[in-house]
Design a protein around this nucleic acid. Structure first.
Lengths: 339, 339
DNA sequence: CTGAAAGCGCTAACAT
DNA sequence: ATGTTAGCGCTTTCAG
């Protein structure tokens, strides 16, 4: 076994020297092989192989100015919703020969900024981001510096920024209507902070649907803010709800992960679903229909969301576009069952 | 609203000109602010703000040689197992002020190579990779070019490459023993191709456990190769198993996603679990215990796996280390229930 | 404390 | 067909 000590990376001039040609010729066999005679091409290729030469991307990029890479920042990479979106992005990018750098902000604007900067410094073509705060000024600034920017899963608050989103108001409203139709008059909503646009929109949609149904949101709606938008958050939120004096009869969750935590907590507490507490999730992730109590959830076109976002990013026509998909309520036993 | 047309990125010399200083001074306020007088520092900072200057990472890196970024390549970003591992990596990297570039190879060696090259060209400190093929020569080559390389979720076949893995043989063997103890004498294994080390190891562990129990693997084991290591693959594999003449009484799955597909298919076919068919998953993802039939599964220390891998990558002591975690069988109703 | 200048590795004119 | 060279944007001596 060779215990090759890590040596300095070979550069193009090392290759040139070994092949006894000029650096220009090496560059040519790399980028326009037809311009160079078969004989020398052979020689250069051999030298490249011998030295394990890999062109320095920084130097190349410094010359070229740009690369075929895009960045994406999602809120939480452990959430299947976002990974499905990421797959959509990857698939579209792949078609165009682009590569994706993926990062997760953890709903932390500071982390978001850090990754944005990293991407920018590395000269990505553009970025797709699920903003972790209400503010998009930093993204407009990015755009004015020549990067393509697409807002992910969030309608653009400004004309100049492209966006691909799902109508969160409509999704939450549909879920609320369903619950009201079932006779629920007091609903808990395990929601994230309103600084996250999706959360604010869903709260609004829910409220509006309640009002439409002739209910007083002040009475009918108990919004519980959970900090972790996952199963642990859902568990903590549900514990709060269960401790309430005038306990709601239904719980809507900001996503299916939170709903998973809610179901788990309810079961541990011996509260039957839906007779003791109806539960609605959001996202309709793959396992939603396979749970002990199959989960009523709001389905979003995740893969398309990502695919379309990448599509906009790649679009040579640089004008801003705003795409909105419609969600769809999928009804299952967690609201209509006999449990 | 300003419709700022994307203009050329400002460079350090633009800043220098605007602030009427030299580029060296601008560089100093960026990197060693103490070396420069407060007055000029102010002036330079103002110019930077005015021009929205963001240093060009490629240029910086070309000089500096390296950056505080690491890359990771997993098989499938839509699999919660890998995203949990990724979270572990991120957490450790974050502590060190590093950032992570994440990519998914789709079990495709070509894609793996492409991302590896991208990472290398961008000068990452190192990479953590779940190899998509049996071969690791390209990774050894990477290492010999000075990058830190850590094999993820796969024991290193060579001394020189660090690795963080879970004992796959032991995990599969434990599951098989459990099944045999329950009286099963014919077991289907929905497994991925053996070119993926984990799959080969699990098949071996399973086989060995069967032999230990006095069973003939040729009789007792039906291995079905699934190409997609997810719910769809699990569904396809289960359909094959159900069509078998001498139908097995238990199905082991290469991961919980596949098990999800298996459960779904069995339910659709009216086969009760476990009385008609016992099912065992692998990974023990978050929802495994919350399914209609809670899933017996092999738990792996996912977060730790990633955390430790990043730890090795960051370790200034460059000698190769090999870490192996032990998995743990979590028994639930999909094997012991009354359904 | 600040400026001038070399050079990181590469590509693309331009020469030969 | 191949060589020479300027310069991408930055950091870092070395002078002043």
């Amino acid at each position: 076994m060779t215990t090759t000590a890590p040596r300095r990376r070979a550069s193009i001039s090392d290759v040139a020297r070994l092949a006894t040609v000029s650096v220009g010729t090496v560059s040519n066999v790399l980028n326009r092989p037809d311009r160079v005679s078969p004989a020398t091409r052979e020689r250069v290729l051999a030298a490249i192989g011998e030295l394990d030469f890999v062109p320095n991307g920084s130097a190349r990029q410094l010359r070229a100015g740009t690369i075929t890479t895009a960045g994406a920042i999602v809120l939480d990479i452990a959430n299947p919703f976002f990974t499905d979106v990421a797959r959509g992005i990857e698939d579209r990018l792949d078609e165009a020969g682009y590569t994706l750098m993926l990062a997760s902000s953890d709903e932390n604007p500071e982390r978001e900024a850090r990754y944005l900067r990293l991407f920018e410094e590395h000269g990505v073509q553009g970025v797709m981001v699920v903003p972790s705060g209400p503010d998009v000024q930093h993204l407009e600034a990015l755009r004015s510096r020549g990067l393509r920017v697409v807002l992910l899963d969030r309608p653009s608050p400004v004309e100049t920024l492209s966006s691909v989103a799902v109508d969160d108001r409509a999704g939450a409203a549909a879920a609320a209507r369903h619950l009201v139709d079932l006779g629920h008059e007091r609903i808990a909503f395990l929601n994230g902070p309103h600084t996250i646009r999706q959360c604010a929109d869903r709260a609004e949609g829910l409220r509006a649907a309640l009002v439409d149904a002739g209910l007083d949101p002040g009475e009918a709606l108990v919004e519980v803010t959970i900090t972790a938008l996952n199963a642990d958050g859902g568990q903590a939120g549900t514990e709060q709800v269960l401790a309430l004096d005038d306990r709601p009869t239904a719980t809507m969750c900001v996503n299916d992960l939170a709903a998973l935590g809610a179901l788990r907590t309810l079961r541990a507490a011996g509260v039957p679903v839906p007779s003791g507490m109806a539960v609605v999730g959001y996202d309709d992730v793959a396992f939603a229909g396979e749970l002990a109590t199959p989960l009523t959830s709001v389905r979003q076109p995740t893969h398309q969301l990502g695919y379309r976002a990448a599509d906009l990013l790649l679009d040579p026509d640089d004008s801003a576009a705003h795409v909105t998909f419609q969600p769809e309520l999928v009804v299952r036993e967690s609201t209509t069952g006999t449990g």
